[in-house]
């Protein structure tokens, strides 16, 4: 069954007709030509298709396009301010946080979403709880926290060491 939906993708209003079965990832890539999010595993394991969906990171392979009619989607490409790269994207480049680059758009969206979550004080499974369960202090975003909070994104080239370095710098830099 076909349904007409509207999506706002990287600041641009897009209108398309999709079969109700279509995932948001396929709608973006196959129907709208937005190939920034990548299809890796198609079942939420690898994180390559991560975008910011109404501001929160989500895997688009596990989202139905029709269920997100009217949503605001930001891909890694949409994070840039014109020619100016997002500070997280720049940090990935500066620290070689990639080899082949396939997982990188998902890694970058995930990192941006993660930094927002950390800023909001969301704990992770490695967050030490102080007396009374004190919320996370952003300055405590150490390598262990970054690894745990980025655990939904796989890199088959194994660029993890530099990904952690890039995110640590972006987290502590003044650029965000």
């Amino acid at each position: 069954m076909d349904t007409r939906i509207e999506l706002r993708v990287d600041g641009e209003q897009r209108s398309l007709t999709v079969d109700t079965r279509t995932t948001l990832l396929d709608a973006l890539r196959e129907r709208l030509g937005v190939t920034t999010p990548k299809k890796g595993c198609d079942h939420g394991q690898c994180g390559s298709c991560t975008v910011l969906l109404d501001g929160r990171r989500a895997t688009t392979c596990l989202a139905l396009a029709v269920a997100h009619a009217g949503s605001e989607i930001t891909t890694a490409a949409g994070l840039a301010d014109g020619e100016e790269l997002h500070p997280v994207a720049r940090a990935f480049l500066e620290h070689d946080g990639l080899q082949c680059g396939y997982c990188t758009p998902g890694q970058i969206c995930s990192a941006v979403g993660m930094l927002d979550e950390a800023e909001a004080g969301w704990p992770s499974s490695v967050t030490e709880h102080g007396e009374g369960g004190a919320a996370l202090d952003e300055s405590e975003l150490d390598d262990e926290e970054i690894r745990e909070r980025m655990s939904g994104n796989l890199c088959r080239c194994g660029a993890y060491a530099n990904i952690v370095t890039a995110i640590r710098e972006a987290a502590n830099g003044s650029g965000r």
């Binding site: 895997t59 989202a63 499974s125 655990s151």
Partner: peptide, 19 residues
């Protein structure tokens, strides 16, 4: 609900827990 929260923090990945 500390027990449920500890379990919830092990579900899937951060992206999965958002959904």
């Amino acid at each position: 609900l500390p027990g449920l929260a500890i379990a919830a923090r092990t579900v899937g990945s951060p992206q999965i827990r958002n959904r």
